[in-house]
Design a protein around this nucleic acid. Structure first.
Lengths: 249, 249
DNA sequence: GCACTTCTTTGATCCAGCTCATTTTAGTAC
DNA sequence: GTACTAAAATGAGCTGGATCAAAGAAGTGC
């Protein structure tokens, strides 16, 4: 255990990221709801987008701010967190390149109901909500794709409600590790490394538990050889064993 | 306390409910995502719908069944519940006339991920998923409206995650009573009566707690004069006091 | 290298809410 | 009214996690 290691997470370069038209078009085409558009249509969309570069731990917008833009992650990671009046934090989502975020509701309140913060340095495209609604009206494929993604998010969200209502913390954390492993995992000498700065507190805020309890559970997982982890990083060594914990008895 | 009372809930007649074309059209027009359609378009939609009548506590579909239909509540109430492998139940939603349910996902799995059961006698319209997708493609207003509703459900769902993660059971139940009161409440000699058979177990399954705990909390609320309740019914007497409980300290 | 900060681990104690078991009551059917 | 049934209330005891507190790494900047 006298393993003198540093963070195994790779930091993306991102400096001087100039976002040429070609690069932006490529990224826009990657976003699932634009994938059916032609090159000309993409160019049009691109014309309505603004790219902004953020460094790590910057706030993109705050819960309660008026929402006018829809955003798309081009590079890096973003976390969406709700801050409760009591001062607790609930981590709602960790986003990847290609994910969109912001507030879509056509009617009703036009206020963000979570805070978006970069988890790594990141490049974000913004498009005015009005322009985006316009696109959805003109290109049904875009609207359908957005609906599809939203429906998926809704069912993920319901699964989480199920977990919070019925599973003990250990199972919830095991499940979160599996999900993050599948979404952000990269093969590595440690196993499947979750490519994302991930503290015990982040995990606790996802699992709806306290930081101390999250830490205790992670210690146990590590002792049992299910994971390897250090300061702000986690690698899954035994996915199957984690699955078994989730579905035990 | 020697109040000799029966269920104050009104049972809808519903017997011999024949669903004339006119009645169905009227109901369809009430459904928010069809409200922008013309009478001719509604007639077309109506042609693709089948109306089915259910009595109380009938299963409409089960979690895991192949999903081919989208449904709309015309009359009565429906509850959506997830059954966990451990045998617990999580009550996801209580529906009203005008609400739609079923599985919308265009791609991905075409399986219901919850069980739909009538909470009262009910009349349900069904439309094939393919037909409905077709409608959304042809009438953007329908697609936008569905997206809007789905987005709202997602944010309700996230609020519930927040509550499960950070609030103690008492506050969660107080909040549920407020929500149900607003959605299903009807003025009455008892106060704002929640027009819906609602057992302690239903409440517990919504709040993610045990039936006993739900019962204890309801007893306390009743002692404190915040609610009146009997077997399977609840009336809110003091909405403000409930709100205060939710946001206390 | 050393000082400093922030994250993580671990111990000790406490309590909200769960479980199990039993009694009471509201509502129904006759 | 009486009998019956399923829901609700209530008591007693236990425990998973929270909280508080303090010590131990892992990085960072100088």
């Amino acid at each position: 255990m006298s393993d003198k290691r540093k963070t195994p997470l790779s930091t993306h370069p991102m400096e001087g990221h100039h976002c040429t038209v070609d690069l932006r078009l490529e990224k826009l085409g990657m976003v699932s709801f634009f994938q059916d558009l032609t090159k000309e249509q993409l160019l049009e969309v691109n014309g309505k987008c603004t790219a902004i570069h953020y460094s790590k731990s910057e706030i993109i917008y705050r819960q309660g701010d008026i929402s006018t833009m829809l955003r798309v992650v081009v590079a890096g990671n973003v976390k969406l967190a709700v801050h409760t009046p009591e001062g607790d934090i609930v981590l709602m989502d960790m986003l990847q390149p290609g994910d969109f975020f912001g507030n879509l509701s056509a009617s009703g309140k036009d206020v963000y109901n979570e805070t978006a913060e970069t988890q790594t340095a990141a490049c974000i495209l913004s498009i005015r909500l009005n322009d985006f609604r316009n696109l959805m009206n003109r290109y049904p494929s875009v609207a359908m794709s957005v609906l599809d993604i939203t429906t998926n998010r809704l069912s993920e969200s319901r699964q989480r409600i199920r977990h919070l209502s019925t599973l003990p913390v250990t199972k919830r954390i095991a499940h979160i590790l599996i999900t993050l492993g599948n979404k952000f995992g990269e093969g590595n000498r440690h196993g499947l490394l979750i490519q994302l700065p991930l503290s015990r507190k982040d995990l606790a805020d996802m699992a709806g538990t306290s930081t101390t309890t999250a830490s205790r559970i992670m210690s146990r997982f590590q002792q049992d050889g299910l994971i390897t982890s250090g300061r702000q990083w986690v690698a899954v060594k035994n996915m199957n064993a984690l699955s078994e914990i989730v579905s035990a008895q």
